[in-house]
Each structure stands twice: as structure tokens, then as C-alpha cells.
Design a binder for these strands. Sequence first.
DNA 1: ATTATCAATGTAAGCGCTTACAAGTGTATT
DNA 2: AATACACTTGTAAGCGCTTACATTGATAAT
Lengths: 342, 342
Amino acid sequence: MGKTRSAPTLNDVAKAAGVSTATVSRCLNSPERVVESTRKRVMQAVESLGYTPNFAARVMAANRSFTIGAIIPTMDNAIFARGLQEFQDQLRESGYTLLVSSSAYDPEVEREQIRTLVARGADGLLLIGYARDAEIYNYLEQHQIPSLVAWSYDPRVQRPSVGFSNTAAMGELARKVILTGHRQIAMISGKTKGNDRAQSRVEGVRLAMTENSLDPDTLTLIETTYEIEKGAEALRKLMNLSPRPTVVICGNDVLAAGALREARNLGIQVPEQLSITGFDDIELAEIVSPSLTTVHVPHREMGRKAAQELVEMVEGRSEGRSVCIDTRMVVRHSLAGPPDLP
Amino acid sequence: MGKTRSAPTLNDVAKAAGVSTATVSRCLNSPERVVESTRKRVMQAVESLGYTPNFAARVMAANRSFTIGAIIPTMDNAIFARGLQEFQDQLRESGYTLLVSSSAYDPEVEREQIRTLVARGADGLLLIGYARDAEIYNYLEQHQIPSLVAWSYDPRVQRPSVGFSNTAAMGELARKVILTGHRQIAMISGKTKGNDRAQSRVEGVRLAMTENSLDPDTLTLIETTYEIEKGAEALRKLMNLSPRPTVVICGNDVLAAGALREARNLGIQVPEQLSITGFDDIELAEIVSPSLTTVHVPHREMGRKAAQELVEMVEGRSEGRSVCIDTRMVVRHSLAGPPDLP
DNA sequence: ATTATCAATGTAAGCGCTTACAAGTGTATT
DNA sequence: AATACACTTGTAAGCGCTTACATTGATAAT
């Protein structure tokens, strides 16, 4: 910290109020254990000195920080913003503070951030998706830090999580796409390596194809990072293919927005000449035109439930349950039947 | 923290390596002060025990945290995301960690967050905009925590800041709007109370009007929170006015995107029947159609320079300089001349 | 009146780390 | 050979707080 030479300490308050440090500490942490008259005097001293407890000292002494850490892949787009905001609000209600850091989708960075957060005394951790080194989970185990996975839910994985089935959600959308008549299907996915959500979404599309007697190997797949620009780039590539896909399923709304923009730049009519779909239903999805057919993920609900569950775990009231959140397809204007072949 | 019963401590490492805790500490913090052979042995012990230093203890003992705090008004939209990302990256390069929290534009919450961050041992703080209680600045002074204001720059204010002149930036845009022929001007602004950036932007429009012999009192102003939905709402209200404004200047791109959407819903052609402008030039601005005429703010540059300056301050190499970042108008498709009167 | 009980407060032992200072060793200088 | 010095490592005193345990005084129970 800054050289806190002049900041008042517990001791200063104790002296000013004419009590012991223990009493001051009690006033702050369990006021009901101090008689009113004393408490008043102490609080006044706190007030007039402008005392703020030193967090590091408190954490060290109490071995408890009332802090929850979250590592998200990125803050750069809105995907995690909404859910995290709700997560934070709910946490605050339970008396916890949220510490966020972002890993830029880099497992190494994530590992480092996890260690940092643990070293900082986080009582519990929110992680995005299942996929990470066993070593990391071991580390958390060893330090006895409860962790909860969010944004993914897979009944086969034995690990507390609050999320949704990316496979099922994308599957539903893909089925709709196929039913609408599309056969030349392309997908712009996020990088699947180390990202189970991206993997599952691709998986969902493949499954839907198989179910409908389409060869999943005919799916044209481009993997890229989740940036608007990259979505645009990928679309450009896809439009050079022959035969051209009649629909582009995007791994999320950000990629879809990029694809949409590029289609406009190329003079391709959406959805008349080309259909495009998204995933997440962030605000962007409704803003772009045509508005995106996508999958709605109840981010707020997820954030709230994750906070509740994680607090339960931290306070020893739960061993870690999993919660599956329902998604639903949102049909808007970017999806239509394939154009008539010339 | 979680009950760290089993986590190894410095002491454990020291024993395992057969040295004193001081030596281990030195290996970790100033390795050059320990002879190679010893260092190797220690590092091996660190490795094999899976030791991570306890942050709270370190902060307490060293009175230094290598942590910078930032309180931003919201994470809910992209306004701050980009600049902050760069701020963080730059900070990391200098060996600092960023702690972010968001205040939801609430001064009370902000005050609390600042106290929390200080109590947590932040070495320095990044604050958005100048406007806040003197009491807060005093508090920081007392605790000797350097703070830097970002997203605002005003040569008249005697306080280190890295930002841009909101007045000048918006003024340039407004001048362009007026030159394009508009006389019926409306503005959808963020809440100006306690938000100097919003205030300055309104100010910028008024100034431009005055300069062009328009009465600034004829500016129709709606203040609202920075949400897409609110932008839409505001536009609806404006379109019920008579005479209808021919241009709607929005306080930022988010509001503009909402306004744009609503115009589309109302069947109003932009820019043929109505012009709309934004501010910030976030990705959204280029995605919507028509794409937004707006003011480009070099967020990355701002984030980077802010990090550099704040680190200098924290390390006592600077008393706090101010940096003015240049913005520039970006002309796209949402602004055109006013429609011919019927 | 005596003892058990309880509520309010004080005493002091750490929590895990850094660092000033002390101690020990080996090398250069005279 | 004696002295100085640099370098490496150890010793131990905190950093500001919480909390188990001890103490005190008052009230209730006998």
C-alpha cells in the first residue's frame, strides 16, 4: 500500500476511546457483543479519526477475506459483463466483495490469476467453463478454496457448475436452421482449444446435422478469436467458397455482428441471400440490422444463482451443487430460408 | 481466505531448503542477493511444495501491494472496457495488478469502493472524471494514495488527469452538425449530475450553438442513464415534439444506438429524415446501420498513458502530470442535412 | 449470605511475511 | 600476518488485526 504512515490504526482508535483493541475489533465485527455505551464511544472515535480497517491485517488475522474472485476470459466484449454484474450485486448482498480479472483466453494467464487471487485470500472462485489443467483444480483443493464453474453445464462432469448446456442450446438453433431448409452450412466458431463452450457449440451443430441425416463432416468450420473484426474476416473467406454456404452459424453474437457487417460491405443481402445466426443474445443482437436470430442466455439469472451457490459453498453449507439454466432460441430477422439456386 | 490449514508457508519452504525464512524471502524478492546454489535449492523447495506467498502477509510486512485500483462507473457497456484493458496490460508490464470495481454511477458506492480499495492496500487509484466530494480527495491525501483522473481533461483543474476535453470534442461534432444545416437540435445526454464528462459534452453543444448564433436555450435536452433502452425511450419522446428536431446528438454511442433502433422501429429514415450522432466510437458505432457519425476517443492510448503516469506517481518519480489526448470526429452515415421542410 | 452464572472487557498470542541488523566467511590490501 | 571489506546468510522485531482465554463485576439461584 501507499506509505500509510499517517493512517490511524485499531490501536489509535482504542486509545482515543479508552478501551482495548479487542473491544474496538468487536465493535466493528460483532457489535452486539459490546454494550451500547461503549460502542457509541468507540464508533465516535472511529468516525473522528477517519479510521478504515487495514484489510491485509484483517485477512491475515481472521483467515477470512469475504472476497470472491472471478477470472473471466475477457472484458472486451459484453458476453460476460451482464452476468458478472449480477453476480457482483448478489455477492454484495451477502456481504462479499468481487475481484475480477481477465485472462484473455490464455490458460497460462488464467493460472497465474488464480494463484494471485488465492494468494490475495479469496474465499472462493468463479471460473468460466470446465476446461483447465487438473493441476489447477488440485491447487485449489490443496488450498481448500471452493470453486464454481459458470457458463457451462454438463451433467457428465463431476464438478459444481451453474450454467447451461452449450451443446443443447446450439443444437436447438442448428435444428431450426436445418428445418428452414439450409444444407450448405458454415460455422464461425471461437477457438475450441481449451474452451469447452466453443467445443460444445460446434458439437451441437454437428449433432443436429447428424440427426437430420446431414454429414457433419460437410460443416465448413472456421475458428477464430471472439472479435467483431475476426467475424468479418471469416465471413469474407466463407463467401469465396464454392459452393457458398447459405447460412453462417456463429459461435456468438460478436462474431455474428462482424459477419453481418461484412456481408453488408460485400453487398450480400441478409437474410435473403445469406442467413446468419448468433449466440448469447447480448444487446448487440437486437441492435444490428437485420436483428440476429440467436440463443438467449439468461445471464442475470446465471450470475445470481452462481453467487448464491458459491456463497453457500464458502460458508460450508453446501458441498457444491450444479444448476442448469434454461436457454431459449430467439427468432429475429437474420435467418430465413436459403435463396433459390440459380 | 479459505481455511488454508494445509497451504505451505515461507517457514515450510525454509525448513525444506534448510535455510532461514529471510533467505527464502530474498530468493523471491531480490534473487540477485542470494548465491546461485542456495537459490536453486530454495526454488526447488518452492516448486515441490507448491508454495504461493500469502499476499496479505506480504502487503502487511512490506507496506506495498503492487496493486492499482480502478473504479469505473459501469462494466455493463463497452465504454470503459477497451481503455481499461489497455490500462491493465500496461500495468502488468510494470509489475502491477489491477483491481477493478464498478460504482453504477453512484457516488456513495464509489466512495465505499475507494475505501475498500485503499483498505486493500492499493498503491494507487484510477478514477473516472473529476467530479466527486472533496472529502474523498482528502481521504486519499491522508492515506497518501496517489490518484489519477481519466476520461476527462480540463486545464483549469489542478489535478493529475489523462483524458480529453469533452467540451472541445463534442463542440467539434456539434459545429459540424450545425454547418450541415441543422437548426432544430436535440440532445440525449447522460445524467449530468456528478458527471463532469456528461456536463462538458452538453456544454460543448451549447458553445457551438452560441458560436453559430443559435440560442443555446433552444437546445432540447433529455437526460437519462446510459442504456440502449433509455436512448430508445428518449428518441420516442423527441419524435413527439413539435417542431421535431432534425438531429439528435447523443451523449455516447450507446444512447445513439438505442435512438437509432427506435427510429427504425418508428419507421423514421436515418439520416434522410433524422440525423443521429454518437460519442466514443466504440465498436457498436460501426456495426449499426447506418453507421454512426461520432467522436473517436483513443481509448487504448488513454489507458496506456494513464498506466504509465500512475506508476510513475506511485513510485515517486512524478508528482502527477496531466496528459491531454486528442479526439477526432468520425464522419459516417448517420448524419446528413436536415430534410426539406414540407 | 454464598455460590454459580453470565455479560462485558482486557490480555496477549499469533497470522505469514519483510527487513534492519548482526554474524560469519572468504578475499583483497597493506 | 593483520586488517578491511564485500558478500552471504541468520536472527528477530514488527506490520495491524482477530480471538482464545482470563478477569472482573453484577445478577440470579440456592
